[in-house]
Design a protein around this nucleic acid. Structure first.
Lengths: 251, 251
DNA sequence: CCGATTTTGTTCTCACGTTCACAAGCTCCT
DNA sequence: AGGAGCTTGTGAACGTGAGAACAAAATCGG
């Protein structure tokens, strides 16, 4: 196992005591794969089975799991329930996390309405928007509240995670307010680069970027000749930014 | 993903003639930063300025740009408009790409309604769902059509990109149909691992995974002691999967 | 009880990505 | 014209990630 407390040079950088970032990003995938197996009544699975279900190769999966501990049995495989719990515990979804969503436009609505959202691990405690026309509106089984209440809500419900679904404009200001109120993890859907102080984690989901990455590869597939025929600097066709999803009047 | 055709050993993996994957993923960010600068009337920017706007460090930005060519001027910086066009061309957003969205639930609605979506670079040509109750419904300025029409639409509009916003269940089947119809790039919002043949690019956006990654780091921040106190294998509290957004009855 | 078989956990090597540091090249001022 | 001052483009060093391969441990059959 090798706890790897004192960092040898050459060893992968671990967050605090362990687990490389790339591995952390895959653990939720494994968790989901294990759940699927469990739902199919499968009690034991080899690294090969699991890897197939998770869409990775088995060596990588074994290495990832080895950072958590030795939870498998040689010659046998992994106990699905047991491993599932260990991963859930490592990720931290054995406890509930309170979440606020700021910006109840199209996307905010979609997230709020999604019933599966409130199941295990994460609990939406408030939907917030600064638009008076939206405040008071019923969304699913919740009511949109005023963004001004943010600080009270964060303090009262011990909110650690904030989701920003406003347009780009107000996103940084919303972000600052969240951080000030005590939120230390942010999931940002607004198409801007947010700056946050050290100690605050931020992740970004950006539809337009994903599409553009696909477009790049798509262009590669369908003939490179076309590339050469494009003029050097044409009218630009009003090629302005391509903002991602994040509707509503926002905060 | 990543065709990586010939691949000399020692050289970074470039897609065909160049550009590492990590760089490709950042180009859209630079494009957006350039647009922001342009909107502010800034005609020239140094790598330092650009890097700040894009949220990366300047050495990385310069190296990324160097894969495209030498578009800067030493001692001066980059011409904003010129560089913007060069990046747009490299990504492939100087032309329009036709896109279909399959699964008009909560999230499909949100994407379809989003006005900015139809601006530059990507054009939604159809909203599809297999649910007869949804077919015919007006969403924004479009009407939901039957998933059965997929093949005709893809052929007629030369659709290369498909967006899957169905629940997990039908996602693989939808994916297969898309691929069979001729779609070669897929953006998947359903919480499953999709398998596609070589030559088809796929990217995944998964809200629940993002939240779980945040939860992991959050757990690290707020005392590790709590971790040790958790029992080894408690009641599991029905810790089932945590499916991500992807509403509606789907296809 | 022992050997054959299976599958994990880990080591080793190579590829990829990031950052530093600096030479090359451009502009501007004197 | 020539030097001072910037800023790009890139070579080299370092750190992280992926995959092959194998030794260690467990089960099973005889």
């Amino acid at each position: 196992m090798t706890p790897a407390r004192s960092r040898r040079p050459g060893a992968p950088t671990r967050t605090e005591r362990g687990i490389p970032e790339a591995t952390v990003a895959r653990l939720p995938v494994y968790l989901r794969a294990l759940t699927a197996l469990s739902d199919n009544g499968i009690a034991t699975a080899s690294s090969e089975d699991l890897a197939t279900a998770a869409g990775v190769n088995s060596a990588k999966l074994r290495k990832d799991l080895s950072y958590l501990g030795s939870y498998g049995t040689r010659g046998v495989g992994y106990d699905v329930e047991y491993l599932r719990y260990q991963i859930a515990r490592e990720i931290g979804v054995t406890q509930d996390w309170s979440v606020v969503i700021v910006g109840i436009g199209n996307l905010g609505h979609a997230l709020a309405n999604y019933s599966g959202f409130g199941t295990r691990g994460f609990r939406i405690v408030a939907l917030l928007d600064a638009d008076p026309d939206l405040v008071g509106e019923q969304v699913g089984d919740m009511v949109v509240r005023d963004f001004a209440e943010l600080e009270d809500i964060v303090a009262a419900d011990d909110v650690a995670i904030g989701v920003i679904t406003t347009p780009a404009g107000p996103a940084q200001e919303v972000c600052d307010r969240l951080v000030n109120a005590g939120v230390t993890s942010i999931l940002n859907f607004a198409p801007v680069v947010l700056s946050v102080p050290d100690g605050v984690d931020i992740r970004k989901v950006d539809l337009s970027i994903e599409l553009q990455i696909l477009a790049y590869h798509e262009q590669r597939k369908s003939g490179e000749a076309a590339l050469a025929q494009v003029p050097e600097l044409p009218a630009m066709n009003g090629l302005t930014d391509f903002p991602s999803v994040g509707g509503g009047v926002g905060a």
